[in-house]
Design a protein around this nucleic acid. Structure first.
Lengths: 188, 188
DNA sequence: AGCACTGATGTCAGTAACTGTCATCGACTA
DNA sequence: TAGTCGATGACAGTTACTGACATCAGTGCT
């Protein structure tokens, strides 16, 4: 006999996305999320530091891949090539079948400034870690930070395209487009 | 006989920075800020949408300069040159005598994740407007968005250097460094 | 002078996000 | 079988933020 249903965090995440999409973030109270997940409000805050975090706390995996991709790039790769390796390592998590879910989540975020802030903060954290990995490789500042941030800019832009209405192309291709655009910035 | 002291918003801003620096953001209630400014809490929220905004609501000027700088760049300037013009137009607001104040403000922000989020969100807004200005100039996507974001990355990095301990060089020089690093990303 | 009107502010009650503290009770362990 | 542990509930408290209405010095009009 189990005392509680397992995976309270997962149930809370699911309930939150559903309710945010149904009635909006502001109109959804933490108490309502908790109720749908079958726990109390207090338990929500044991799993997530705040209401917004429920949409982001499962993204550590993809952030780590970005960083590991940079770390494991060939030693003689240029900064931009190392960043590119990071993006390649991360984008594999976004297979075609995940696109629809990503779209729902992005729609929710697009409708709420607070969630946009959190997303930017998370991506900035990834960029910081990538910059640190570049420094480990011997890249000097400010090149390391700028390379990392430019890489994140490319990824974010590609990701937004990927989940845009009527977009048929897949993420790796769109990231390639972005990298091309970044490279051609300095030659045009 | 004036009914109220003038410039309530300014007094609130000043009180907020002081209190945030003295005891931290979390330990400072809006009621305390309002009291030091000689108004009620309700009045605080008439001027600022939320507690964090009090540190950012006077930044519209500098954001606009960035955008206008892009708009007014020579028609034949490359995307990156137009962005560079934007940065040049914006950085003039950060004269040497402003450095100390910027340092205090940055220290406060660095100590509080919520304020970092808001800062990132504001800068993202500037990047969006710069990207729109680039599109006006005929720059296609995703180049416009990536150029704008890379430019903001350069500026933010330079700004952080500018207010770092022991930094003697001035902002324009540091922005130049960043632009050089960005340009050499694609050639190395 | 008298008077309506405006706009910045105060007052007050209410909601909801978050926090600290202690109680509960199946499951595991000695 | 007793004791401990860990996830959860219960509950009170603080504070950010909002809506509705009251106040009243100044302004312009008659």
């Amino acid at each position: 006999m189990v005392r509680w249903e397992p995976d309270a965090a997962g149930r809370l995440r699911k309930a939150a996305v559903e309710l945010f999409a149904e009635r909006g973030v502001e109109a959804t109270t933490v108490a309502a999320i908790a109720e749908r997940a079958g726990v109390t409000e207090r338990t929500f805050f044991r799993y997530f530091t705040d209401k917004r975090e429920v949409l982001f706390s499962d993204q550590g995996e993809f952030a780590s891949r970005f960083v590991i991709g940079v770390e494991e790039a060939p030693a003689d790769a240029s900064p931009l090539d190392a960043v590119t390796a990071g993006l390649r390592a991360g984008e594999v998590l976004f297979a075609p079948e995940r696109r629809e879910g990503a779209r729902v989540r992005a729609t929710v975020i697009a409708a709420n400034p607070g969630l946009q802030e959190r997303e930017l903060w998370k991506m900035a954290g990834v960029a910081d870690r990538m910059a640190a990995a570049l420094r480990e490789r011997g890249v000097a500042e400010p090149a390391a930070t700028i390379a990392a941030r430019a890489g994140i800019a490319v990824f974010s832009t590609a990701f937004a395209d990927w989940i845009a209405d009527g977009q048929a192309r897949e993420l790796p291709e769109l990231v390639e487009d972005g990298l091309r655009a970044l490279r051609s910035l300095t030659v045009a």
